[in-house]
């Protein structure tokens, strides 16, 4: 009889440990979300009042003067991101295509896959130092172009890996039926495989864009900053991110409030791009099944 009692006690204890651990795991999930909501809440609370018509249309004021906006920095960020995408995405797509179509088992494929994975998480500030050394120093000046190159370098590994993963989802039977009809391989890849996973490729590119549009560190000493309109990629270019850094560190209340506005704008842009990217991929997955 006593044995039954002991095992009953042990059973209760096991149950209790189980419940405690599961509560802890739930608590850690709540802990993670808590910070997200805190940060987003603060951003909206402090950033929204700074976003007015002038913020989007006017140039920055001299230090200490109220008013003005960050129109040049908004345009600068968009220009840099577009140029970086134009440079980084084709490279990433092609290298990713190699991995999926020719390099699944080759040594080069393995090495490139490994390097791309490592570079995805490599510190972005080092990329900035690298671009400074190869572009800014020899050209004797900070430039928007250098900033875009730094962002492109960060985008490439992200696009490489998503392109590969997506192309791998295309069943070989599809490739083989197209080949059997006499289509050359490049046509099979570009016209059939790409089209089949178009949504997934778009997701990869959008995620890469989201990733770089929040980057500040690689821009600090490549595109630098510029308080005026500038559409010339050979000159320093203002961006929201670097402006936010400078304004947040400044002693002026008006600048700090603009920094919160910029922070809200950047975060909204990045989070919206991320969510859209997710929606695109989940829609194509539904289409596939």
């Amino acid at each position: 009889m006593s044995a039954g009692k002991i095992s009953g006690g042990r059973y209760m204890r096991r149950k209790a440990v189980n419940v405690a651990m599961l509560v802890l795991s739930g608590a850690s999930a709540a802990f993670g979300l808590f910070w997200l909501f805190w940060i987003l809440g603060i951003l909206i609370l402090r950033g929204a009042p700074a976003l007015n018509w002038a913020f989007f249309t006017q140039l920055p004021t001299p230090p200490g003067m109220a008013g003005g906006g960050l129109a040049n920095a908004i345009v600068g960020t968009l220009m840099l991101t577009v140029l970086a995408t134009a440079m980084g995405v084709p490279v990433g797509l092609m290298a990713g295509t190699y991995l999926a179509e020719f390099g699944r088992q080759t040594a080069l494929g393995r090495v490139v896959r490994f390097v791309a994975d490592v570079m995805t998480s490599a510190p972005s500030i080092v990329i900035g130092v690298f671009v400074y050394a190869v572009l800014v120093q020899p050209m004797r000046g900070f430039s928007g172009f250098a900033g875009a190159v730094a962002l492109a370098v960060i985008m490439i590994p992200v696009v490489v890996r998503t392109t590969e993963e997506m192309l791998k989802l295309v069943p070989n039977s599809l490739r083989e039926s197209a080949l059997a009809l006499g289509a050359p391989y490049w046509k099979v890849v570009f016209r059939i495989c790409y089209r089949r996973v178009f949504g997934g490729l778009t997701t990869g590119i959008l995620l890469a864009i989201a990733r770089v549009s929040g980057e500040t560190a690689p821009l600090l000493f490549t595109s630098l900053n510029n308080p005026y309109w500038n559409f010339d990629f050979t000159k320093p270019m203002g961006t929201l991110n670097v402006t936010l850094f400078n304004y947040a560190m400044s002693p002026y209340d008006d600048w700090r409030s603009k920094a919160w506005g910029a922070a809200l704008l950047i975060t909204l842009g990045v989070l919206c791009t991320t969510v859209i990217a997710r929606l695109v991929v989940s829609r194509t997955q539904i289409g596939r099944s």
């Binding site: 929040g214 975060t267 989070l271």
Partner: peptide
């Protein structure tokens, strides 16, 4: 939703964490 929230936490740019960290 929880998975998406955790993913969002990763997507928030570094500089936003910095600014929130310094002022809040």
């Amino acid at each position: 939703p929880v998975g998406l929230g955790v993913e969002m936490l990763a997507a928030v740019p570094s500089i936003i964490y910095g600014m929130w960290g310094l002022f809040i």
